[in-house]
């Protein structure tokens, strides 16, 4: 079984200049009751997006038609808190392919990579530049090349490299799946178990 191959993405951005966005905000616990992976996008940022009467809150960026695209730009320490992978499913299901921030929580980063959502960590300065550019021109585009590990602000041509574990990069580029790999080394795992027990 494979996940989709990750191709170079060129897209406008959705800015969320808030720090410490935790996974309880990304998807509140009361929406975790499903037993499948689908449909979480509907409740992405639920409590910021809708008021108590389920009316869209106009000021929230996802409700602002001026901002759309496959790239979410977020403040520092994105994805902290609960390990719920539902947060990643929600972001992915909503249509994002990339999240850009100056800092990601560990578990969130792993979860994202396991689901074909690319976390791109850039410097605080570059993050501010992108926020400013998007604020000035809502349709500002970025290009994210996984192959080159490079994110470019197309508007000015400024760019920065980002890091990714080479193994994960290979998986994403080729659509490989970790579990296929683990299943392929079952014998090795069995040998390990046998050696440990004596």
């Amino acid at each position: 079984m494979s996940i989709d191959k990750f191709l170079t993405i060129r897209s406008s951005c959705v800015p969320l200049p808030v720090e410490n966005v935790d996974t309880d905000q990304i998807i509140p616990a009361r929406f975790l009751k499903a037993t499948t992976r689908d449909g979480f996008g509907e409740n992405l940022f639920r409590d910021w997006r809708y008021d108590k009467k389920n009316q869209p809150i106009k000021e929230f960026v996802l409700n602002n038609p001026a901002y759309k695209g496959k790239v979410l730009i977020a403040g520092k320490n994105f994805g902290s808190g609960s390990s719920r992978e539902h947060a990643v499913w929600a972001i992915h299901d909503y249509g994002f392919k990339v999240v850009v921030s100056s800092f990601f929580a560990d578990i969130f980063k792993n979860n994202a990579l396991n689901n074909g959502l690319l976390p791109v960590r850039i410097s605080a300065e570059f993050l501010t530049k992108i926020f400013n550019a998007v604020e000035a021109e809502t349709d500002t585009e970025v290009e994210v090349s996984l192959e080159e590990q490079k994110i470019t602000l197309l508007f000015t041509g400024e760019w920065e490299n980002f890091e990714i574990n080479p193994y994960k990069k290979k998986c994403l580029l080729n659509g490989y799946d970790d579990i296929d790999y683990l299943l392929s080394i079952k014998d090795k795992i069995g040998t390990y178990e046998a050696e440990r027990s004596n």
Partner: peptide
């Protein structure tokens, strides 16, 4: 340590997970 659901699946399938050393 805590893991995500994809990793839960890894452990169920192989009793192992892929992790970089922190």
């Amino acid at each position: 340590f805590g893991i995500g659901t994809s990793e839960v699946e890894m452990v169920l399938a192989s009793q192992c997970i892929l992790q970089s050393k922190p």
